[in-house]
Write a protein that binds this DNA or RNA. Structure first.
Length: 149
DNA sequence: GCCAACGTTGGC
DNA sequence: GCCAACGTTGGC
């Protein structure tokens, strides 16, 4: 079963929000590489919930995929900040997945902490200049992160 | 708020 | 197909 990491700005949607709601839709991904990873997700996959663009960037918990990729409705909604004028119902390039809450870490595993782990050095997350918001995580990386909890 | 790094767009 | 300009991401 594959593992993933997905970034979200906690001001928009945080691990606490997911915990409260129990479930949510992961939408608004507007990058082709990230979208392709979304399409490779299957129900039951686990992912690290990463908080970006905030006071303490880092991994804040774990979620799971509860519905595999489907057309992202926000691309078709003119009122949405994620609206894409080029998307149509028959030709919508963007996908969303549904997610469920699994676990919230007692404390966020900070980016400097993650960068200090040799086992995580190959992750796009810790690489300079990388902006990829959805990425695969290897079994080794997954376990290395879990050991930091 | 700054700015480095990146992806996308569009003229040629 | 090249590449400059632009907009965005995201840490600091």
């Amino acid at each position: 079963m594959p593992y993933w990491l997905m970034k979200s700005e906690p001001d928009e949607f945080s691990i606490a929000n997911l915990q409260q709601l129990g479930t949510g839709r992961w939408d608004g991904v507007r990058n082709y590489q990230a979208r392709n990873f979304l399409r490779n997700m299957t129900e039951g996959d686990l992912f690290f919930f990463y908080h970006s663009s905030c006071a303490v960037p880092g991994i804040a918990g774990i979620g799971k995929i509860t519905r595999s990729a489907y057309q992202d409705p926000t691309a078709l909604d003119p009122a949405s900040p994620y609206y894409d004028a080029k998307a149509t119902t028959s030709k919508n390039p963007w996908d969303a997945v549904d997610v469920g809450f699994v676990e919230r870490f007692p404390v966020t595993l900070t980016l400097p902490q993650l960068k200090a782990q040799p086992a995580l050095s190959q992750m796009p997350l810790v690489k300079k200049g990388s902006r990829l918001s959805v990425m695969p995580v290897t079994e080794t990386e997954w376990q290395a992160v879990l050991s930091l909890r």
